[in-house]
Computed example of a mutant assay.
Amino acid sequence: MAENSAMQIEPDVSLKSLNTFGLPAVAGRLVRITSDADVRRVVDHPDLGRAPKFVLGGGSNVIFTRDMPELVLKVEVMGQRLVEERADAWIVEIGAGERWHDAVAWTLDQGWPGLENMALIPGTVGAAPVQNIGAYGLELQDRFESLDTVDLLTGRTVTLDAWQCRFGYRDSIFKGALAGKSVITRVRLRLPKPWQPILGYLDLERKMAETGCTTPDARTIFEWVCQIRRAKLPDPAHIGNVGSFFKNPVVTPEQCRDIIARDPHVVHYPMEDGHFKLAAGWLIDACGWKGKTIGHAGVYEKQALVLVNRGGAIGSEVQTLARAIQESVYGRFGIRLEPEPVVV
């Protein structure tokens, strides 16, 4: 959409193909956002400016349980460029509407490694900071420089650094104080020089043992991560899902010892602050949920952390299944699992 073009308001848009779980929902009104100016047009609009709004990226982190009376802002800001090359890093800027995996592949193609551990994470670049996405020992905040966001009240573009984004484990200010109040349009990432591989995860250690390659380059790690994820996780194009459905719970050393005493095989990882992260998928599997189904929503046969659409699922069925799993895990381990996706 050109800077001076009129805003297109699309009525009664089906969101089924715009969320990776493939859940039915209809947006009463939808506007596609391709620039900061598009957001300002919405803010300045006599009717839409005051309307409640819902920001939609790639739809890989949302569970629709109803139709959307809110104005849906579909973020489609594109573009990829090198902003600056420093002695210690490359700074790249990527439009919020670009697919995250495509952005990871693009940086590697340019010879700028550093994102390879986060290959194949579903969703868009703009959604990545909201969730502080992460995989295989790396989180977005580890590679974050800054982002641009447009305020939905004033229409002003504001640049936020990592501290202002308040990153936490699968968390940020965009899930708290700024939830529904701004639209991320561009993200800048810092890819450090010299490059250092991150290989501390069990699955990557297995790949090193299998291949005999103990000093993989970034492209090799990228390919390994893609292979691991494809073996474990269903492709949303074929089986509706949002990737990992629950956060890995973080517990105190005392809690971890207590669980290990009862279940010595529990998968756990030490954290820098002394806490331990437990594998939510292991906890769910231990409660016997792998492969189970409620209505048309089920638990994936190869990975208990992933809930899937068996065909024709609706949001309430996903909610019912998720709550049953939460109750089951709490009953056995005394741990409350927290969902990763936003439920609306």
Rank of each mutant, 00 (worst) to 15 (best):
S5Y: 12
I9R: 14
P11M: 08
V13D: 14
L15K: 14
K16I: 09
L23R: 12
V26E: 11
R29L: 02
L30S: 03
P46C: 02
P46L: 06
L48N: 07
G49N: 04
G49L: 01
R50P: 01
P52N: 11
K53Q: 10
G59K: 08
S60V: 01
V62C: 07
I63R: 07
I63H: 12
L71R: 14
L73R: 05
V77W: 09
M78D: 11
D88I: 00
W90C: 04
R99M: 11
A103H: 13
G111Q: 08
W112E: 12
A119R: 01
G123S: 06
G123P: 15
T124R: 06
V125C: 06
G126Q: 04
P129E: 15
N132T: 02
D142K: 04
E145P: 02
T149L: 10
T157L: 12
D161V: 00
Q164F: 05
G168A: 07
D171Q: 07
K175H: 14
V187Q: 13
R188W: 08
R190C: 02
W195G: 03
G200E: 09
T211G: 02
A218E: 07
R219W: 12
I221Y: 14
F222H: 13
W224I: 03
V225Y: 06
R230G: 02
K232T: 01
K232L: 05
P234W: 14
P234I: 02
G240P: 06
T252G: 14
Q255E: 15
C256R: 10
R257E: 14
D258F: 08
D273G: 04
G274L: 12
F276W: 15
A279M: 10
L283T: 05
I284K: 10
I284R: 10
C287Y: 01
W289F: 14
K290A: 01
K290E: 10
G291S: 07
A297F: 11
V299I: 15
G311V: 03
I314P: 01
S316M: 14
I325L: 09
S328P: 11
Y330K: 10
G331H: 06
R332D: 04
E338Q: 15
